[in-house]
């Protein structure tokens, strides 16, 4: 008999600190599978900022850099600009990317920075115990919206793929989910495409992954999957929001 499914090499064989049923683990695996399949672990550098995934440097076998909250795209820019032949990705949560790090996100996109941003949207701040995130849905109860998020008081969620697809420097923006096997396969395909974009120097690529947070949503892992399907996907429609095949830069200029 031969093995048909096992841990990818780019994912270190250690238990993770993520809560039971937290889909961070799935995204870690499909990202590592893409790195294995492209054979690029040796020249990939990952940047993980503050959030539940801040300790991802203990989980990925490629070189890793821990960044300040919200600053991963800037750190990644510093890495990529001085090491253009290396693959650079960031792995960020919604608070990190769409609250404190909004400027870094928008500007690395509008610069067409040749990096891959893996954006985990679980509508909450997980590591700090369940506070409102920029993607928290209207009416959603969190530690800092105990009566449900009221737009009058706390405004509306940020739709990141829609926002960034308006920027010329964004080559590829797709929103995926990891709530089911078909969706996980599609998510992996999107991550692979993002890395291929980077290889071809097409510009900024972001994959927004709708993800669960059973602990802070106060749901069981399977109930959390259901909430993602019933509440998040309708508010954050899956799909490709931008895909510039020929890349964002004029032919003769190129990114280098």
């Amino acid at each position: 008999m031969s093995v048909v499914f096992e841990r990818p090499h780019a994912l270190i064989d250690v238990p993770t600190h993520y809560c039971p049923g937290c889909t961070h683990g799935i995204v870690h695996r499909i990202l590592a599978e893409v790195i294995d399949e492209m054979g690029i672990e040796g020249n990939t550098i990952g940047v993980c900022p503050v959030g539940c995934s801040v300790m991802a440097y203990d989980y990925f076998n490629c070189d890793m850099i821990e960044a300040a909250h919200g600053r991963a795209p800037a750190v990644a820019t510093g890495v990529k600009r001085t090491n253009p032949d290396k693959f650079v990705f960031t792995y960020q949560g919604d608070g990190d990317l769409a609250a404190i790090g909004t400027a870094e996100t928008v500007h690395s996109a509008t610069r067409g920075e040749n990096i891959v941003v893996i954006f985990i949207n679980n509508t909450i701040y997980g590591m700090t115990g369940g506070q409102m995130a920029p993607t928290t849905l209207p009416g959603q109860v969190t530690q800092t919206t105990p009566f449900g998020r009221s737009p009058q008081l706390a405004g509306y969620p940020v739709k990141v793929c829609e926002m960034l697809s308006q920027l010329t420097g964004t080559a590829y923006a797709e929103r995926v989910a990891v709530d089911s096997v078909p969706h996980i396969k599609a998510a992996k395909k999107a991550i692979r495409k993002a890395f291929e974009n980077q290889k071809a120097g097409k510009g900024f690529s972001i994959v927004e992954v709708l993800s669960t947070c059973p602990t802070n949503w106060g749901l069981t892992p399977l109930e959390a999957i259901k909430r993602l399907q019933d509440e998040m996907i309708p508010y954050y429609p899956l799909g490709v929001y931008k895909d510039v095949e020929e890349g964002v830069f004029p032919a003769e200029g190129g990114n280098e």
């Binding site: 031969s2 048909v4 499914f5 238990p15 683990g25 799935i26 096997v181 996980i184 396969k185």
Partner: peptide
């Protein structure tokens, strides 16, 4: 049937499938 759907959904790489 070694479809590995269980393993695909597992967040912890806790399932190995052989065929």
């Amino acid at each position: 049937i070694s479809c590995a759907m269980c393993a695909t959904m597992c967040p912890d790489c806790a399932i190995v499938i052989e065929k």
